[in-house]
Measured scan of single mutants.
Amino acid sequence: MAAAAAAGAGPEMVRGQVFDVGPRYTNLSYIGEGAYGMVCSAYDNVNKVRVAIKKISPFEHQTYCQRTLREIKILLRFRHENIIGINDIIRAPTIEQMKDVYIVQDLMETDLYKLLKTQHLSNDHICYFLYQILRGLKYIHSANVLHRDLKPSNLLLNTTCDLKICDFGLARVADPDHDHTGFLTEYVATRWYRAPEIMLNSKGYTKSIDIWSVGCILAEMLSNRPIFPGKHYLDQLNHILGILGSPSQEDLNCIINLKARNYLLSLPHKNKVPWNRLFPNADSKALDLLDKMLTFNPHKRIEVEQALAHPYLEQYYDPSDEPIAEAPFKFDMELDDLPKEKLKELIFEETARFQPGYRS
């Protein structure tokens, strides 16, 4: 834990890192770190609560700039109880001085990944967590956004079992017609939660990839272990087919990539493993919904509104309290091709509203 900075004593240090967030945020305490930044909790002297502050230093890398800009653009436009918001952003007053960006968010005690390492969940908890994931996802999908990296560590939890989806750095506007060349190379989302079509096709992607990830998360809540822990690309596919069985001819016809289709045709026939054999203690309604989410063919996979209306979630289902976005989200430009200098300018502009004396 960093010592509390005395008023006016300059930035606090946390594990050798400068955290320049005073005077409003003090009493910093280390939480963890990701690929390009550290997260601390801090005391907000204005709202009198502890908050989470993520320090991001992305400006050396085009990919990190892209992810940072995506996350900020999306989260500043989203407003939903099951999606983490941005409360404040701290950065230098000029673009030349801006080396880091500090993002202030609600402090959540833990995440689903940490929880599943230590606790076996009751059916009631599984049901409530799944409902909140789908409630947040309904809003995301209504904005025409794909999260693309749903996994237990991106689901934040607090002691009252509130759940918030975080990390929109890989999110995209849904565009089933656009052929994202190089899709697989830039697709760094965790393999275990990846839909089979991501490994088999490169053309376009749809909201059904997020539903697949939610199915993987439900299976993990039922058993405290990942359902498809593939060691590499082909191993991942083999794990999936080992449980779902061989795809039907109709399902194979959806695979545009001939090499991928021929690979699947070359494999020995596998039978589907019954879900109640894998999860003998699970609620039968939970397994019915799991089956509809972990469907090989993305066109037959359940959609988020149908999933919310499934009998497993009937005690929570309330369409009048499951809000959607006001308007579909649009990125003005494809960020993939922009140089990091341009992305830095866009991050600077996007964060201006939090600067003292800002006038829109």
Rank of each mutant, 00 (worst) to 15 (best):
D111N: 13
Q315H: 13
P319E: 11
Y25A: 04
I243H: 05
L290R: 11
G32C: 15
S153I: 12
I256Y: 07
E96H: 02
K55I: 14
F296N: 06
I90N: 14
A195N: 00
Y317T: 05
L157A: 12
L163C: 03
N224R: 13
W192P: 14
W212Y: 12
K342H: 02
H125W: 05
G242A: 09
Q355P: 00
N45P: 03
G32K: 00
R24D: 03
D210S: 06
T94P: 13
L156P: 03
R353Q: 06
S202D: 09
I211P: 10
T68D: 02
L28S: 09
K73E: 14
K340S: 04
I140C: 12
D124T: 05
K292S: 08
G22P: 09
I90K: 01
F296S: 14
T118D: 05
G215E: 14
Y131T: 00
N224C: 10
Q66L: 15
A5S: 14
K203A: 11
L346S: 11
P58V: 03
I217D: 06
F296T: 05
T206M: 12
P311S: 13
N158M: 08
S213Y: 08
R261A: 10
I198V: 13
G37I: 11
N82E: 12
K164Q: 11
I133T: 00
V173G: 09
V49L: 13
G37S: 13
D149P: 03
W275L: 15
I83K: 00
C127Q: 10
S153K: 09
P196V: 12
E33M: 00
T160A: 10
N262L: 08
S202V: 13
A7I: 06
G8A: 07
H80Y: 09
A4Q: 13
G169N: 00
L258M: 14
P93W: 02
W212I: 13
I140E: 11
I31T: 00
G169H: 03
Y64H: 10
Y316I: 01
D179T: 09
L335Q: 15
Y233I: 13
H141D: 08
A174H: 05
L155A: 06
D106F: 00
N238K: 13
A171T: 14
L112P: 09
G34I: 04
H80K: 00
H80V: 03
M333W: 03
K73C: 14
K272I: 15
I86T: 00
A4V: 12
P196S: 12
P23Y: 00
A286N: 00
K330P: 02
K300E: 10
P229G: 05
N253M: 13
T26H: 10
N45I: 15
R359T: 09
Y317Q: 00
P226G: 04
I302E: 08
E81H: 11
S320Y: 14
R67L: 05
R172W: 03
K272M: 09
E60F: 01
L294Q: 14
N238T: 13
N201V: 08
K48E: 13
C161K: 05
I324V: 05
